[in-house]
Computed example of a mutant assay.
Amino acid sequence: MVKQPAPDATRRSDKSRRAIYAAALALVGEVGYPRTTVEGIAARAGVGKQTIYRWWSSKADVLLEAFLDLGERTARAAGQEPYAVPDTGDLAADLKAVLRATVDELLEPLFEVPARALAAEGLLNEQVGREFVERLLQPQLRLYADRLRAAQDSGAVRRDVDPRIALELFVSPLAQRWLQRTGPITYDYTDTLVDYALHGITPR
Rank of each mutant, 00 (worst) to 15 (best):
32 G>S: 11
22 A>K: 11
136 L>H: 14
155 G>M: 07
177 R>F: 06
171 V>I: 07
62 V>H: 08
12 R>F: 00
46 G>Q: 07
67 F>H: 12
56 W>T: 00
1 M>E: 11
105 E>F: 08
79 G>I: 01
110 L>W: 12
11 R>L: 10
65 E>L: 01
92 A>G: 11
55 W>R: 13
175 A>H: 08
50 Q>S: 14
40 G>R: 11
162 D>M: 05
53 Y>D: 03
69 D>Q: 14
79 G>D: 03
74 T>Y: 09
94 D>R: 11
198 L>G: 01
63 L>T: 05
99 L>G: 01
87 D>I: 05
60 A>N: 12
105 E>A: 15
182 T>R: 14
97 A>N: 10
41 I>V: 15
91 L>T: 06
143 L>R: 15
122 G>A: 07
118 L>Y: 10
77 A>I: 01
86 P>Q: 08
4 Q>S: 10
165 I>P: 08
179 L>T: 14
99 L>P: 04
164 R>H: 13
188 D>K: 06
131 E>I: 00
121 E>V: 12
69 D>S: 13
163 P>E: 01
190 T>G: 05
96 K>E: 07
194 V>L: 02
122 G>F: 08
67 F>N: 07
194 V>M: 03
113 V>W: 10
85 V>G: 04
62 V>G: 04
179 L>W: 13
161 V>N: 09
156 A>R: 14
170 F>E: 01
139 P>K: 05
159 R>I: 05
130 R>Y: 00
99 L>F: 06
112 E>Y: 06
112 E>D: 15
17 R>G: 00
195 D>K: 05
56 W>R: 12
3 K>T: 08
181 R>L: 09
45 A>L: 00
19 A>F: 08
90 D>N: 15
142 R>T: 06
188 D>C: 03
118 L>D: 03
158 R>I: 03
53 Y>W: 01
60 A>S: 15
145 A>S: 09
96 K>V: 02
12 R>P: 07
127 Q>D: 14
202 T>I: 02
23 A>V: 02
127 Q>S: 15
74 T>P: 02
159 R>M: 12
167 L>R: 03
175 A>S: 12
146 D>Q: 15
58 S>P: 05
104 D>Y: 10
42 A>H: 08
123 L>N: 14
137 L>P: 01
70 L>N: 05
41 I>Q: 05
91 L>K: 07
156 A>C: 08
184 P>C: 02
166 A>N: 09
31 V>Q: 15
118 L>M: 09
76 R>F: 00
197 A>Q: 02
14 D>C: 03
164 R>L: 09
186 T>Q: 10
49 K>Q: 13
15 K>D: 11
180 Q>M: 15
23 A>D: 04
14 D>K: 15
81 E>I: 07
129 G>I: 07
13 S>G: 10
122 G>N: 10
61 D>Y: 05
25 L>S: 06
40 G>V: 05
87 D>E: 12
179 L>Q: 15
147 R>Y: 06
180 Q>R: 15
33 Y>C: 10
37 T>D: 12
68 L>Q: 07
86 P>W: 01
168 E>G: 15
81 E>K: 13
169 L>F: 12
90 D>M: 09
57 S>K: 15
17 R>W: 09
80 Q>D: 10
102 T>V: 03
